[in-house]
Amino acid sequence: MIRVEDLAYSYNNGPSLSFPDFEVKADEACLVLGQSGVGKTTLLHLLAGLMTPSNGQIIIGETDISQLSGNRMDRFRGKNVGIIFQKNHFVQSLNVIENLLLTQKLSGVKQDLDYAKNILRQLNIDQYITKSTNDLSEGEKQRVSIARSLVNRPKLILADEPTSALDDGNCQAVYNLLKKQAKEVDAALLIVTHDGRLKDLVEKKVILNKNEVNV
């Protein structure tokens, strides 16, 4: 689960953003909605610990990640936060399963080949285990991305615009997949998007406005 309180971020001698308080429990899904430029990506990076907030708390599980720094933050993120980016990037020189195993390795989690294979199987991409990630279609790449975000059994899954490039049918399918998998590992699911189609599927929403707070 994740809880956010009094969160604010100020750019280097630039404007500052403040974010609404919210909480997403394990097994729960939540949308983060908002116009371009209101700080969706910034929020995502704050929650992932890629940036350090100027104020407030981000509690994932029992840990306030705003207190973590340096390598401990990197480790914590690797272990507890799975991120699905808008663009599906991989370590190109490694094949599908190697990418997953590297993710385990980097976070300091014990490498678990069976579990990684199992996830690929659940996502119906286990036939690509030894394929180069370059040879996959975009849809397959996204599935590998999802698999990678799950491979360490994270407490929080962050997805950045996972559906914006998909047609209606696939949009629903991907959401269902994310929801199912998040439930599987008992993770809170946070989807950052401006995709209106998801609004009907997800009950819980955090809406960002320019320096405004709405829950």
Binding site: D74, F90, V91, S107
Partner: peptide, 16 residues
């Protein structure tokens, strides 16, 4: 490989 390296960071690799 900027993106790739960033991914490694996201996956838990430190800058070191």
């Amino acid at each position: 490989r900027e993106y790739e390296l960033s991914l490694l960071r996201v996956s838990g690799a430190g800058p070191g």
